[in-house]
């Protein structure tokens, strides 16, 4: 009996330890990024583009990357939404439980696990075949592909939660499926849809491997859809690659800015969905 109770307590202890280890790793990561990133962070970093000699440690900032990332992730999210919303509605409202819906869900789940570097390579092939070069548009398309499964699956999950009788009530009043989807279901699921959009945006803005091939990099602010564009993750990556400590310091600051943006989006979407769902359920 003593042995059994010891075993119980022993494993419970291990579990609590593991749990605390995982929970504290987030704190550890944030601590390191803040500690190393804060010293070099200043106003000029956030408001200026790189000046001549920036990569040797001279003046300038990463505004090009901040704006570029917002353009890239914003465009990618918009494109993913244009494609993802109809898919989520088709799967969730038009033909729930059909074979096609199952196949679409399965493919989305599979796409969700495809590494971003593979999307990058695919985007690169796509651009070559269209005769494009690394550009904002290329990055947007690639990010949209990356974000599509994340966003659509998240929307699908909330649409599934809509009570069946709500839809039935709508059909009973003579509404078409399109009307049901875009007038009834969308109102009920708006908080969830916004969360899904922000989730995808957060994933898009932090991704480096997919834009590496397709968006290029430039010290200037984004010029147009067909111009190359800088991004925050790559700003971190490239500045770390220089041999100058001052520049590496700035890489840490850029990482801090990126982390900050992503955390705000993650926490914000949680807050927003909590607030909005309170209204939705009246």
């Amino acid at each position: 009996m003593k042995r059994r109770r010891f075993e119980e307590n022993f494993f419970k202890g291990i579990m609590i330890f593991c749990f605390l280890l995982v929970a504290s790793s987030l704190g550890f990561i944030l601590f390191i990024v803040v500690m190393k990133g804060l010293p070099a962070l200043n106003w000029a970093m956030l408001t200026q583009t790189p000046k001549g000699g920036y990569y040797l440690g001279k003046e300038g900032g990463i505004l090009n990357a901040i704006i570029g990332s917002i353009y890239l992730a914003g465009g990618g999210t918009l494109l993913a939404l244009i494609l993802g919303l109809p898919i989520a509605f088709y799967v969730g409202v038009y033909s729930r439980k059909s074979k096609i819906a199952d196949w679409v869900r399965l493919s989305l789940d599979i796409l969700w696990g495809v590494p971003s570097i593979v999307y990058g390579a695919f985007g690169f092939i796509l651009m070559l075949s269209m005769g494009m070069r690394a550009s904002l548009l290329g990055g947007i398309i690639t990010l949209a592909l990356l974000e599509l499964p994340i966003m659509t699956r998240a929307m699908d999950e909330v649409i599934r939660m809509v009570p069946r009788d709500l839809e039935q009530a709508s059909y009973a009043l003579g509404a078409t499926r399109f009307e049901t989807a875009f007038r009834v279901v969308i109102r009920q699921t708006l908080p969830g849809i916004i969360t899904a959009i922000l989730l995808a945006f957060g994933r898009g803005i932090g991704d480096a491997a997919s834009v590496l091939f397709t968006a290029g990099y430039t010290d200037r602010l984004p010029g147009g859809l067909l111009q190359p564009v800088a991004s925050l993750p790559l700003a971190v990556f490239f500045q770390l690659g220089t041999p100058f400590p001052e520049v590496q310091q700035r890489a840490y600051s850029a990482a801090l800015v990126l982390t900050f943006i992503v955390l705000i989006i993650s926490l914000g979407s949680r807050w927003l969905s909590n607030r909005l769902s309170r209204f939705a359920h009246e």
Partner: peptide, 8 residues
């Protein structure tokens, strides 16, 4: 934890 970007 899942949201933290790869480069970070």
């Amino acid at each position: 934890l899942a949201a933290i970007p790869s480069v970070v």
